[in-house]
């Protein structure tokens, strides 16, 4: 009886955006009279953080501090259409729509600033502090609060913008499957280190080494959240999760968290993660969708590590102690 250690690998890619496209999202942005920019969306934050990412994209494009940006989502009376949060599409679609809206608003902002400062709009710049300045003449500047007031009460201008991102739908050719399914692809490779108890069949995942290529990490702390939580879900899928443990039989399905098992805080592996960035030409500042991909590579990496540890090839998920023990028994019988 022993604890057997093994290592396994898996590498994957994952598409960004609704399969075959045809999934628009819109963003509207307007400045209040005191220079706060409100982004109106109908996009849903499931915890992945689109509210924060949308604000970052707008602040970057406007050239203003993020404190000047508010996100108002999701009310179908006030927010323009969004296809929804799924298919690793939120950051890509909504981010692009917000950038487009913010770019239009920025154009108006600079036009009004040019009038206020009596200069050419092309000679103006922003530096992220809240001021619009004449390039090379630091004292020739106006703060966004003063500018927004002037736009409204003096120039009769709305500082606003409209944005939409649409990848036009592609229909597959039924005979061959020829199609244009995605906007870009993110990538991941996992090395998993496991320990298999050959007496109990229990598999423990000790370490995960993950390299992710994600286009651009718009917010590195939130990207870290996504990959770390996603890899945990991969471990959970690999070792524990199913609503039908004796599939295709419908019996013994769990009805609660006592029966539906997931790794708790004492069961988690050490994760070593690294990001690579190969910016996507069509991504918001190069970003690709990563929310879904992160759970995928750990599952086969763990299956392969179990084989490496004890010679049992598990062809069925999840990799329960029962399956490991049956596999070990089969090895002994042959």
């Amino acid at each position: 009886m022993a604890k057997l250690r093994g290592r396994g690998y898996a590498s994957v890619n994952y598409p960004t955006g609704m399969n075959l496209g045809g999934d628009p999202s819109q963003a509207l942005i307007h400045a209040t009279t005191t220079g706060t920019f409100v982004i109106s969306l109908s996009s849903v934050d499931l915890g992945q953080g689109i509210k924060t990412i949308a604000a970052q994209c707008a602040a970057e494009t406007l050239g203003l501090p993020i404190e000047n940006v508010l996100v108002d989502t999701a009310d179908t009376d006030t927010g323009p259409h969004c296809m929804g949060t799924f298919a690793s599409r939120g950051t890509h679609r909504v981010g692009n729509a917000v950038i487009m809206a913010a770019a239009e608003a920025r154009g108006v902002m600079l036009e009004v600033a040019a009038e206020e400062l009596e200069v050419d709009a092309a000679d103006l710049e922003t530096d992220g502090t809240g001021f619009i300045r004449l390039k090379g003449a630091q004292e020739k500047a106006i703060h966004i609060t003063d500018l927004a007031l002037a736009a409204h009460f003096k120039h009769g201008r709305t500082i606003s913008g409209r944005g939409i991102y649409l990848k036009e739908p592609s229909a597959p050719v039924p005979e061959t499957g020829e199609m244009d399914p995605d906007s870009c692809q993110a990538h991941a490779c996992t090395a998993a280190v496991v320990e298999v108890d050959d007496e109990t069949g229990v598999v423990e995942v000790l370490e995960l080494y993950n390299a992710y290529e994600i286009g651009r990490a718009l917010n590195p702390a939130m990207a870290t959240q996504q990959v770390e939580g996603g890899a945990w879900m991969g471990v959970s899928h690999a070792l524990f999760e199913t609503t039908e443990p004796y599939y295709p039989s419908r019996d013994h399905g769990p009805h609660d968290f006592a029966g539906y098992l997931m790794p708790g805080p004492a069961d988690i592996p050490v994760q070593h993660s690294l990001f690579l960035e190969r910016p996507a030409g069509n991504g918001p500042y190069g970003a690709k969708g990563i929310g879904e991909m992160t759970a995928n590579a750990p599952i086969p990496a763990i299956a392969n590590a179990i084989f490496d540890a004890c010679g049992v090839r598990l062809e069925s998920m999840p990799f329960t102690p029962e399956r490991v023990l049956r596999g070990l028994d089969a090895l002994r019988d042959t």
Partner: peptide
């Protein structure tokens, strides 16, 4: 911004 470095993108911004 203006072709320069990012000011907000790529930065750690606290979740709103």
């Amino acid at each position: 911004v203006d072709g320069g470095d990012f000011t907000v993108i790529g930065s750690v911004v606290q979740r709103s």
